[in-house]
Design a protein around this nucleic acid. Structure first.
Length: 876
RNA sequence: GGGCUCUUAGCUCAGUUGGUUCAGAGCACCUGCCUUACAAGCAGGGGGUCGUUGGUUCGAAUCCAACAGGGCCCA
């Protein structure tokens, strides 16, 4: 046999991937079959594969491969998104390294650099997915900045604007001073930071006294336009209607009463800085306060910062505290932990900032999306525990800030023609905007050169929320054949941390632009964590190199390793040992194949053992298939894998192959050989979605196949009935074999020494299984007798007793002890069952089946007790 | 601070509308085996008061309440 004894994944994986690609199995086009569609959650175009992607995409590949084998028209659309902030940050950093500051080059030049970067690093991640075995339809690969995708985004923006759902507003936004852009609420991460609570005295005008406020941000006092106290706070009654002077800038501001203030917190007196705090801003609007903005876009102080102009906010804080101290305004400073918003992308501390931004009204969009998940169930979240999280977010939804002060992305199609804030027209092209502008302004002499396009781009999620529609051209051409066929898609697999960013918004877009759900089921995976439960991240350096893992364990090994502990929605503690387990499993199957492949086949009679073993395994397979189908239906992919794993390793390899194996040096009969090969093939089919490479390799080794006969398109096994009696008979057989093995082990009897087995049959055993017992336990003779043999070791299966006579080596006392223990346990068990049965309320209230079951338990226990008593009596 | 969720073997997790000999699986662990597919293997074995305390029920890992301790989301 020239097949190596170890499976070598690296040798075959590329070869089979090429084969699959060559024959176009991954490609889908509309036909009369039922479609099964998945759109990939588009990774960042310049990203690299990490563990989360591997898990996520392995799950998608499992689903898509199974669907393909089920004869559905399986279509998995791959692609990437442009990741506005992340990519722009990378390009800015690269330019900086080359000594080119971003503000020294034009928008056009910058975009050229960004495209260069995208072309250089873009799509690496898609190549990595191929290594993992992902069977995406690569002909359909999409990028959110492709011309048609971009056109879809712009079209949607214009439509929503015309419907009045997009508006421009001067609002407090989350400003990332490092990226110099606004962020949506979802992109802000709150972190506990150790800081100080500063107590600062503000002189009250016209009196000699001061009032003390407490703040964590003393530098913002330069922007203060009021001081606020609780209207019912007796301590401050005398201040109502008074004015105070803000230290350093000497601005005179009013004292306003408002119940917003928490009397117990700090001094009960709050400084109000409408330009730099969302709550202060709202108070400012309510009380008609002035707004004094003290920051530049990079969070250095502007001219309102007086002599601190140009200083960074944190340096200015120190300096201002020092000045306050020197001038006697600082009353005290106490340590204080506060929650600070930071940028998800740059980690910079968010600065609340007032600016003009574009917003999308969410209320109308959210309603159908909420109903789809929580009422009609048209979209199902798996696991359903996410329903509540989803509800909470959707019911408290706020308008979506969709503009970003960046260059990399779709530029907002708003064209300004005049100095006023509302002097703009929104249209898909500049030409169209010009017409509108002429009409709006009443000035027919406007020319293209008079128009200035808005400088901002759209949030990346404003592209991704259209993804399930736009990848099929459904925005630009809503009636095209593709979108009609593939939309709504079937399953979406993604991580729960983008449930709001992306999933919820896709559901909204689905109903808004197609009047239909975008997908049927959302499978939310867990987050991949390391053994210490830390989230895997680049900064921690605790994420293993994906490609190196594949090299070490094989793609199949890694896939199995990831899936083994990946119950939906549960975080997965990644452990390389699991990949090793996957690799071992691959090797196990490989060796099972080597065994069968190495058999010499002859036209001889089929032994009874083999016939029976095969009959059992057929039933076993049928039953397991039912379980597997159930697991898939419930998206319990790791359970489906485990059921397959045990079927193949335990039932097929450890039992069936041992039963069917011919004696050493002897050939196998053709009937057995053909049946075992056939069953092996069924196993490979079930395993293919999990371990595509290994299974295809073995499949093609078994016999030559045409491209139509490749495993990747082989028909998925059909669920069939099974004979429970056969399975029960084998279970008993298995227990008997184990019993004999245990005795052999206890008494150090090697397998090559035959033993004889004597059975006291109390239940009317089906003796057809005896040859299998004989073969697997080297007990050539099985005799039946009502009497226990002299000097024998025994064990019991059900109410039957099995003896292995062993002259001389039997420890009588130990045997008696063992029997007594079993007897005691069984009596106790019987007592508990009888107690139940003698309880009238149980008999009357419990379902008939349950009562019948208890009766059977009692009867079985009684007969077992009889057997045990008889044996004890014969020994004593 | 508000909402949600979880706690079962050394680890990671199953356990369906309360009812099989229900206390499970995989891994890890222990013991014995180089048995002619596989030592990346085979065979056998130990291990849990189901977080705690009460309650409902004929019956609770499962339902309810309180408490203790994790986690997630939001502010």
């Amino acid at each position: 046999m020239d097949i190596p004894s170890k499976y070598e994944p690296n040798r075959v994986e590329n070869q089979w991937y090429d084969y699959w690609m060559q024959h176009g199995y991954f490609h889908s086009q509309p036909d009369e079959r039922e479609p099964y569609t998945i759109v990939i959650p588009p990774p960042n175009v310049t990203g690299v594969l990490h563990m989360g992607h591997m898990l996520n995409n392995t799950l998608q590949d499992v689903l898509i491969r199974r669907a393909r084998m089920q004869g559905k028209n399986a279509c998995w659309v791959p692609g990437t998104d442009h990741a506005s902030i992340a990519t722009e940050a990378k390009v800015v950093a690269k330019l900086k390294e080359e000594g080119i500051p971003k503000d020294s080059i034009s928008r056009e030049d910058f975009l050229e650099h960004a495209w260069d970067w995208t072309h250089k690093y873009g799509g690496v991640i898609l190549q990595q997915l191929k290594k993992l075995g992902c069977s995406c339809d690569w002909d359909r690969t999409k990028f959110t900045m492709d011309p048609d995708m971009e056109a879809s985004v712009i079209k949607v923006f214009v439509e929503l604007f015309e419907k009045g759902q997009i508006y421009r507003g001067y609002r407090m936004v989350n400003w990332d001073p490092e990226a110099r852009t606004t962020l949506s609420d979802e992109e802000v991460i709150y972190e506990e930071r150790q800081g100080f609570l500063y107590h600062i005295a503000y002189p009250v005008e016209g009196t000699g006294e001061t009032v003390t406020i407490a703040t964590t941000r003393p530098e913002t006092l330069l922007g203060d336009t009021a001081v606020c106290v609780h209207p019912e706070d007796e301590r401050y009654f005398h201040l109502h209607g008074k004015k105070v002077r803000v230290p350093i800038c000497d601005r005179v501001v009013p004292v306003i009463p408002d119940p917003y203030v928490t009397m117990e917190f700090g001094t009960g007196c709050l400084k109000i800085t409408p330009a730099h705090d969302i709550n202060d801003y709202e108070l400012g609007v309510k009380h008609g306060l002035d707004i004094v903005d003290i920051f530049n876009p990079d969070a250095t102080l502007n001219a309102n910062g007086l002599h601190y102009e140009g200083q960074d906010r944190f340096e200015a804080r120190k300096a201002i505290v020092k000045e306050l101290e020197e001038k006697g305004y600082l009353v005290k400073k106490e340590p204080y932990t506060n929650n600070v918003g930071t940028s998800e992308r740059t980690r910079a501390v968010i600065e609340p900032r007032l600016s003009d931004q574009w917003f999308l009204r969410m209320e109308d969009l959210a309603r159908p999306a909420l109903e789809a998940v929580l009422d009609s169930g048209e979209v199902q979240l798996v696991p359903s525990k996410f329903d509540n999280t989803y509800r909470h977010w959707m019911e408290n939804i706020r308008d979506w800030n969709i503009s970003r002060q960046l260059w990399w992305g779709q530029r907002i199609p708003a064209y300004y023609y005049g100095p006023g804030k509302d002097d703009f027209a929104v249209a898909e092209t500049a030409e169209a905007a010009l017409e509108k502008a002429r009409a709006q302004s009443g000035n027919p002499k406007l020319e293209l050169t008079d128009l200035r396009q808005d400088e901002d781009v759209l949030d990346t999620w404003f592209s991704s929320w259209l993804w399930p529609i736009s990848v099929f051209g459904g925005i630009l051409d809503p009636d095209n054949e593709e979108v009609k066929y593939y939309y709504p898609t079937t399953d979406l697999v993604t991580a729960p941390d983008i449930l709001f960013f992306w999933v919820a918004r896709m559901i909204m877009a689905g109903y808004a632009f197609r009047g239909e759900r975008p997908f049927r089921t959302v499978y939310l995976t867990g987050l991949v964590r390391d053994a210490q439960r830390r989230k895997m991240s680049k900064s921690l350096g605790n994420s293993p190199d994906a490609l190196k893992l594949i090299e070490t364990y094989g793609a199949d090994g890694v896939r199995v390793g990831l899936l083994l502990s990946a119950a939906a929605g549960n975080d997965l503690l990644f452990d390389e040992g699991l990949c090793q387990q996957g690799k071992n499993f691959a090797n196990k199957i490989w060796n099972a194949f080597r065994l069968v492949q190495g058999w010499e086949v002859a036209d001889i009679d089929q032994p009874q053992t083999a016939a029976l073993g095969i009959k059992w395994y057929q039933n076993r397979l049928a039953k397991t298939l039912v379980e597997i189908e159930d697991h898939y239906t419930k998206y319990r992919i790791s359970d489906a894998l485990m059921a397959t794993y045990r079927l193949i390793w335990d039932d097929f390899c450890s039992w069936l192959l041992e039963i069917a194996k011919p004696a050493y040096g002897s050939p196998v009969d053709r009937k057995t050989y053909d049946a075992v090969i056939g069953l092996f093939e069924e196993n490979l089919k079930l395993l293919h979605p999990f371990m595509p490479f290994l299974t295809e390799e073995v499949w093609q080794h078994i016999r030559p196949r045409t491209p139509e006969q490749a495993l990747i398109v082989a028909p998925w096994p059909k669920v069939a009935g099974y004979d429970a009696e056969v399975l029960e008979g084998f279970d008993t057989t298995r227990e008997v074999v184990s019993g004999i093995r245990t005795i052999r082990k206890d008494k150090n009897i090697p397998f090559r020494d035959a033993v004889s087995l004597s059975v006291r049959d109390e239940s009317g055993l089906d003796r057809q299984w005896d040859p299998i017992i004989s073969k697997l336990s080297n007990a050539p003779e099985i005799t039946y007798s009502k009497e226990a043999p002299e000097s024998a070791l025994s064990f019991r299966v059900g109410s039957n007793e099995y003896f292995i006579p062993l002259a001389g080596s039997v420890d009588l006392e130990a045997e008696i002890q063992k029997l007594r223990e079993e007897l005691e346990y069984t009596r106790g068990f019987l007592a508990s069952v009888e107690k139940k049965l003698s309880n009238e309320r149980f008999v009357n209230n419990a379902p008939e089946q349950v009562v019948a079951l208890e009766r059977k338990k009692a009867a079985d226990a009684v007969s077992k007790i009889e057997t045990l008593e008889k044996s004890l009596a014969s020994l004593q």
